[in-house]
Simulated assay, not measured.
Amino acid sequence: MPITEVEGRRLTLSNLDRVLWPRTGTTKGELLHYYATVAATLLPHIRGRAASFVRTPDGVEGQRFFQKRPPAGTPDWVTVAETVRHSGELMDQVLVDDLSTLVWAANLACVEIHVHQWPAGRPEHADRLVLDLDPGEGRTVVDACRVALLLRDRLAEDGLQAWAKTSGAKGLHLLAAVRGASPRTASAYARRVAGELQAGHPAGVVATMAKADRVGRVFIDWSQNSERKTTAAPYTVRAQPAPTVSAPLSWEEVAAARDPRELALTIGEVPARIAEHGDLLAGLLDPERAGTLPD
């Protein structure tokens, strides 16, 4: 097994030729290469946030599991943080704060990285607002783009600047930086705005959880602002049939979308987008752009 050194830490890499995406023939080695290539852009979005992973050791068409606790054999140099479960039990979670930890996780076939909307150790201090646009049966990400434009304008009325990214699956995520919020107030605000959109566009938008109500409409999931929930991180790979990425989009791309395939961005495409456009979510990291939720 090859041994490499990353940031002064020796890592043993295994099974780099193992195919994780059978339909495209994409290997674990290609997954590691992607994460190493985009690390400088990805890490600022997840640094200091407890991470949960979707692991697919036998490939995305095999067994998968959601890993919150540090995996067995986690090196002592990997930073962990203590979080609280629903039961009140304390639990350690990994902080993917550096390149070496990112490569280590990818080598374990941690395909997906999910994080909270609040920094580790500060569960009452939400600094991000997220709205997950999930197309129901008969709708696509193109329909989600139309709703995203409405939501962008609605958030702007309250002084909030929104950024968009693909979910990497079939929908979109809208993100805004906030200050002085908590998961409770962020959830309440997101729920109210989602309800307003449903009231104004009942034929195309739904804000209720019942799956039967989503047919032919785009569901605005406001619940991911809860302190217990996580969302797919910017630039994470997804365990989909192809190695798609939760990739930032410009608003021009959102407005121009006509075919879902245009927004199915993969690990082969995202590094070139970063090289050409930089981080389209960079503004999300700027404290000066954070808004205050209305009462």
Rank of each mutant, 00 (worst) to 15 (best):
L150D: 07
D132Q: 05
A232I: 13
V215I: 12
S223K: 10
G204Q: 15
P123E: 12
A207K: 08
V130L: 05
G136C: 07
M209Q: 13
A233Q: 00
G180C: 03
S182C: 00
T140W: 03
D153A: 15
E157R: 14
L151E: 03
P123I: 08
K211S: 13
G204F: 15
A169K: 13
N225L: 03
L131F: 12
A232V: 15
C145V: 07
E137H: 12
A194L: 05
K211D: 14
V142C: 07
R228L: 14
T166M: 02
P183T: 05
R192S: 13
S223E: 05
A186H: 05
Q198R: 13
S223N: 09
A233H: 00
A126Y: 05
E124N: 14
A194C: 00
V178E: 09
G159L: 02
V147L: 03
A148K: 07
E124F: 06
V141Q: 10
S187I: 07
R191W: 09
E157S: 09
V193D: 11
V142I: 12
S167Q: 01
N225G: 06
D132C: 04
A181R: 07
A232C: 10
S226N: 11
D221N: 10
A156Y: 00
D221W: 07
T140V: 00
A181I: 02
L174A: 09
V147A: 11
W163G: 03
A186S: 14
I220R: 10
A156H: 11
Y189N: 02
D153N: 10
Q198Y: 00
A194Y: 09
L151K: 08
T231D: 04
A199G: 15
V178L: 05
L197M: 15
R146P: 02
A210V: 07
D127N: 14
T208L: 12
R191K: 15
A190L: 06
A232Q: 07
G216Q: 03
A148Y: 10
K229P: 04
G136D: 08
L174N: 06
A210Y: 12
G216L: 06
V178K: 04
A203V: 01
R214F: 08
D213V: 09
